[in-house]
Amino acid sequence: MRRGPDWQGLVFCLCVALAWEVAARQELLPPRLFPALTSVLAQLAEGTASGAFPRALAKTLACMGAGLLAAACMIPLGIWAGRSEQVWRTIGPSVEFLRSLPPALMALPAMLLLGIGDAPKIFAVFFAASFPILLCTMDGVRAIPPLFLDTARTLQVKPSVLLFEVILPAAAPGVFSGLKTALPMAFIVAMVSEMIGGADGIGHLLLRSQRSFDIPQMYAIILVVALTGGGIAQGLYLIESFSLRWYSGWKRVCGQRCD
């Protein structure tokens, strides 16, 4: 919708950055807590160049891969539960209970069971990512316009065609809304479990830099994390708008609210 650079927004950001820099240099704020922005950026450059930040980040993102594993398990289950009311009635109460647990919590029993290391992190991420994907896929399947299914039935398509060429594409908007909730959450949960019992990863590095009072580095890592979070959201958005090109057109044609 917006075209051209966002001048006002940029100017505002620059003003805030400048105010921070001046306030820090003049020591208007406690200098221990608010280092100058330039020193944070210098720290960011140094950490990136030395490979410390990218290594830690790669570790965290690798654990986030468990989120994709969750997608691989939960999309089929979501389709099944969306197609069959019986299935949802069976697993529904269990899912509702597990879903109401704060996801980062699952790192603890996993830690007890699997020891400290990557395994509890992966388990917690898998757990956290599962439910949004499951529920959104299910809702996506339930929201498939009956016209699609009726047409498929009239044409007497094979079950595999029905699944891969009708249900899966038609439920894709739901699947994507699940992924858009699940993957940022997976990132957060990976970081929390690194903070609780991890020995590496960006969350661990972040907490360590605070504990050793390396404040510029702490701010630099917060910047890295913010950029990564933004990158994940943006990447998902791009993938979604690419794979759902048909959907926006279809929505326009039907003049129907499908969000």
């Binding site: 980062a104 970081m191 972040l206």
Partner: peptide, 12 residues
């Protein structure tokens, strides 16, 4: 600011 995972603010 919005995509910043809140838990990253714990140390701050």
């Amino acid at each position: 600011l919005r995509p910043l995972p809140s838990v990253a603010l714990i140390p701050l």
